[in-house]
Design a protein around this nucleic acid. Structure first.
Lengths: 224, 224
DNA sequence: GCGATAGGTTATCGCCGGTCACTTACCGCT
DNA sequence: AGCGGTAAGTGACCGGCGATAACCTATCGC
């Protein structure tokens, strides 16, 4: 009944004659459009499970299988989509770490930069860091893991601080850096999953308060 | 072609004549069986997206709609499943906080208990804390949020430590407690999502090292 | 001009979460 | 004793999902 989906629309009507999109060497162009559309939808709905391949295809103005010409599967599409912005995060952290001031000051700027980055792009942050690395992208990640690059910045900063006598670290710098990363990651995660706003009649710290509390705690922990 | 699914098997064959399961007031019994099966499957595959309602039904030996007699939807089922064990976590934390020793010692035991709990039940931890609270369970959570109970323990411990002069906290205890929780949560999250084992040729801290690094950092941060 | 092929399309698959209409077995009530 | 009400459970099915198979067609090197 009311069967508008089964109408053949085969080879006579052709109101929208497919999509006029071509140019020989320019398949990469469509690839970028797909990534843009994915990123947009991801930030609109917040989680990749809520973004369907059909929705991406529709936004781009293309059919679903066309996406699979450029990306092996949904996981790869979303990983590539998020990784584009990783350059931005790495850059911000490296800028913050390389700026002027004491190691502690620079470390504080790094922490704030990380937290603000995560909170600024919830969908992408949770897609990148919130769940297991999907099997189909795991081999790729091993060579170029986003989180690992962040970790590197912190490790070097800690080493510098210890060498300068500014920081104390009775554990290996890598272990301490992991702990610092964990604190920042956990804070972003708690805020993005709304774990701090479920109970309206309990006063809860704002995002800014959480950021400064986490940064304070971590830095105090290293200067003790 | 090869249409074994459309075979009627209507009202004559009946090889397995439904499932002999009844008893009037004992529907709750099936409910518990469903929760047990869900928990088992969840820990086997690690994520609720990978556990289908059909798989749960099959393990229990029941049909899919029967599950919906006891749980409104999949989210509610998994939330109830995980919440059962929340009692355990709350108990462990309260035990650790109420034990003997200085506030710092008890705080350390709390941190270790939290981390071990999370690492001990990956599927349930990630289901409870790893993503947004689903809409269908959110109203319920507001009244009895798992994380909130953990937070309470830490807040009281910090207040006690500050009063005893053992801890220093220039921020409100709640803010500091959130930061401590964030550190622990982030550590569990990083470990469970395998963020610390992607690169085989880089030495990475073990789970135990991460635990002690996070606990050290947090406690140092409060005693500075 | 012309065949190869990059760049698409339509149609369909199998599986998922969830619902509907229906049946069965127990139980309180007369 | 037996009968209606209802708790408990079932088979069939829906729309939507990720993914694929088979097919078409405009472009471009030759």
């Amino acid at each position: 009944m009311t069967d508008p989906l089964t109408v053949p629309r085969s080879s006579a009507t052709r109101e929208t004659p497919g999509r006029s999109r071509a140019r020989k060497g320019e398949g990469e162009l469509l690839r970028d459009e797909i990534l843009d559309a994915t990123e947009g939808l991801l930030e609109e709905v917040g989680a990749k499970e809520a973004v369907t391949m059909r929705a991406v295809a529709e936004r781009v103005g293309v059919s679903v299988p066309s996406i699979y010409l450029h990306f092996a599967d949904k996981d790869v599409l979303f990983y590539e989509c998020c990784r584009r912005n990783l350059v931005e995060l790495a850059t911000r952290l490296e800028d913050a770490a390389a700026g002027s001031g004491t190691v502690v000051e620079r470390m504080r700027r790094c922490g704030e930069a990380y937290l603000r980055f995560g909170l600024g792009q919830p969908g992408q942050y949770m897609t990148l860091f919130g769940t297991d690395i999907p099997d189909t992208v795991a081999p790729d990640v091993a060579a170029d893991d986003p989180g690992r690059r962040c970790l590197e910045v912190v490790v070097r900063l800690i080493e510098e601080g210890v060498a300068a006598g500014e920081l104390r670290s009775n554990l290996p710098p890598l272990s301490t850096a992991v702990a610092v990363w964990a604190a920042a990651h956990g804070a972003v995660n708690l805020l993005l999953t709304k774990r701090l706003q479920t109970d309206p009649h309990v006063e809860i710290p704002s995002g800014e308060e959480v950021i400064s509390a986490v940064v304070d705690l971590s830095i105090n922990g290293m200067t003790a």
